[in-house]
Simulated scan of single mutants.
Amino acid sequence: MTNFGYTLMTEQSGPRELVRYASAAEQAGFDFEVMSDHYSPWLTEQGHAPYAWSVLGAVAQATSRVGLMTYVTCPSMRYHPAVVAQKAATVQLLSEGRFTLGLGSGENLNEHVIGAGWPAVETRQEMLTEAIEIIRQLHTGELVTYRGQHFDVDSAWIWDLPEQPVEIGVAVAGERGIRHFAPLADHLVAVEPRADLVTTWNSVAGAPTIGEPARAVGQIPICWGPDEDAAVRTAHEQFRWFAGGWKVNADLPTPAGFAGATQFVRPEDVADSIPCGPDLDRIVDSVRAFWEAGFTDIALVQIGDDSQDAFLREAAGPLLEKLRAASR
């Protein structure tokens, strides 16, 4: 069975609104909720970037059923991995076992703010590997001292540790990353509906099999609204950065850089890649590519803060019915 999730977009909504949307999304029937973890929005038009972990604590208390997940946190620059281990354990306790720690190697947009530069992708992957090792060790409940190439930990101990371990999903984009990280992770995270990501993961020795017990968690932007033209305008204003792809987006440092990189992206270009307007069947057809590629969990991104209440009140329920019927 495919699970369908709702994305709490910290780049387009303030903290109090995100908590309210989280509660409404649970009531609308979503299976899980994912939250982005950014220091800055991609574009100034989005206008927000609250601290995701504070919001997650509030969301854990405002909801009772849905799974929760970071999508994704970089545990190697803004945050030391020992700190990520502590706060992941705390969110797991607050949510009573509903939390999954989604990790990735980061984006320049968020990580450059600490003034440590922006490493090459190979270095970032080495840092992520060490970070996962540290988090895993700290979550055993043992006293940890660690000496690595990129990180040191000195006599660290997680004092409030949940009985149910925090599972880890890792964002991957290609074969090299999958072969390296699949044996270290519990779940696959990706934003492209590519069947080769799932099949490659399942071919790696030591990797948990997608479907049982591992999940393949994808994400897709949509812009539902009663007026298709208005929805296209909103998607273009807020989400034209999406056209750049991960390799470009990971390296741009500021919203101004994203604005410059996307200045020639037209509304019709965005509409070609993001389903916009009131047609729920078109949204279903766009999401279909993920479950056909073998993804078990698919999170929807409803673009635009102003549209969230109407989407959750009017469209989410009927859309979930159509998605579940089509994915059986």
Rank of each mutant, 00 (worst) to 15 (best):
L184E: 04
D196P: 00
Q86A: 15
L128V: 04
Q92V: 06
R313N: 04
R328A: 12
G141C: 07
F151P: 10
L280R: 01
T145Y: 03
D272T: 14
A261C: 05
W42L: 02
Y51S: 09
Q238V: 01
Q219T: 12
K87H: 11
G211M: 08
L188W: 09
H139G: 01
A171G: 13
G211R: 12
T100W: 01
R266W: 11
I210E: 03
A243C: 06
I158R: 09
G14V: 05
Q149L: 08
A216S: 13
D152K: 01
G115R: 02
N202F: 08
A316G: 10
H112Q: 14
P50I: 09
Q238M: 15
S286Q: 08
A214R: 01
N108C: 14
Q61L: 13
Q164M: 11
T63M: 05
R124A: 06
Q61Y: 10
V59I: 14
T140P: 04
T140M: 04
A88L: 03
D154W: 14
G257A: 15
G211E: 06
A49M: 11
A24S: 12
E175T: 12
V144I: 15
F99V: 04
V34G: 15
A171W: 04
R288E: 03
Q61S: 10
I220V: 10
A89Y: 05
T63F: 05
T209V: 12
T90S: 13
V83M: 10
Y71G: 00
A173K: 03
D285N: 14
V19E: 13
H187L: 12
Q219A: 12
R124C: 11
K87C: 02
S54V: 03
I303H: 05
E228Q: 15
I222C: 05
L323H: 05
Y51H: 14
P183F: 04
A60H: 07
H48K: 03
A325K: 12
R176S: 15
T7D: 01
E142A: 08
S273G: 08
F181E: 01
R16W: 05
L252Q: 07
Y21T: 00
H139I: 09
F32W: 13
R288Q: 10
G141T: 08
Y6I: 04
V172H: 02
P221N: 09
D309F: 08
R240T: 08
A293Y: 07
S327Q: 07
I178Y: 03
Q125F: 07
V198L: 07
F30W: 04
M127R: 15
R240Y: 10
F258Y: 14
T90P: 00
I178K: 05
T90C: 06
A22W: 11
E167P: 07
R179N: 08
V55R: 03
W224G: 11
A256R: 04
V284W: 10
A82D: 13
F151L: 12
A24P: 00
E292W: 00
I178S: 02
T10S: 13
E111V: 00
A256V: 12
H139C: 03
E126G: 13
R313I: 00
A60I: 04
Q61C: 07
K87A: 08
T70K: 07
K247N: 15
E212Q: 14
